[in-house]
């Protein structure tokens, strides 16, 4: 049995439904046949739909899956909401670079080793009824 695995991620594209949305078809028709896009490029008037699918292969179970194929189907709409142009971006269009390692600081209590030991069984769950038999949302019964 081969140990390598192929992981298909993102949008599942099949060629024949693509033919259903030639240039000029309406936005609703695209939504109907291709479904909701992975992400869109416009805030409200949906200028571009992006259908993004990735294929990864993992030679052995513990390895990180390696990106072997990436397809971005971009459907550009005109201002009247008709398909103006369809473009395809592949893995070659993508760029590889190392990401910025800095992160914006955030707050909140963090666990220290002693804190974890002393904290014991973690947070007591659930509303504790107080002497009036009220649960914490305040009604008496």
């Amino acid at each position: 049995c081969s140990t390598s695995e192929v992981l298909k991620q993102g949008y599942v594209l099949d060629e024949d439904t693509l033919a259903l949305v030639p240039v000029g078809s309406s936005r609703e028709q695209v939504l109907l046949s291709l479904g909701t896009p992975s992400t869109t490029a416009t805030f409200d008037n949906d200028e571009v739909f992006y259908y993004i699918s990735q294929t990864r292969s993992r030679p052995v179970a513990f390895m990180k899956p390696r990106l072997v194929d990436q397809r971005v189907l971009a459907v550009y709409f005109s201002s009247e909401g008709m398909v103006r142009q369809i473009a395809n971006y592949t893995l070659q269009d993508g760029r590889v670079f190392d990401l910025i390692s800095r992160t914006t600081p955030t707050g909140g209590r963090d666990l220290t080793f002693l804190g974890q030991l002393l904290a014991g069984p973690g947070e007591g769950g659930g509303a504790v009824p107080n002497p009036f038999g009220q649960t914490s949302d305040g009604n008496p019964y």
Partner: peptide, 20 residues
Amino acid sequence: NTRTRDYVIRREFDLSEGDA
């Protein structure tokens, strides 16, 4: 998850957001 970090749980999923 009041103690386990988010990524420790998320990395056990083979599927991610946006996948089928």
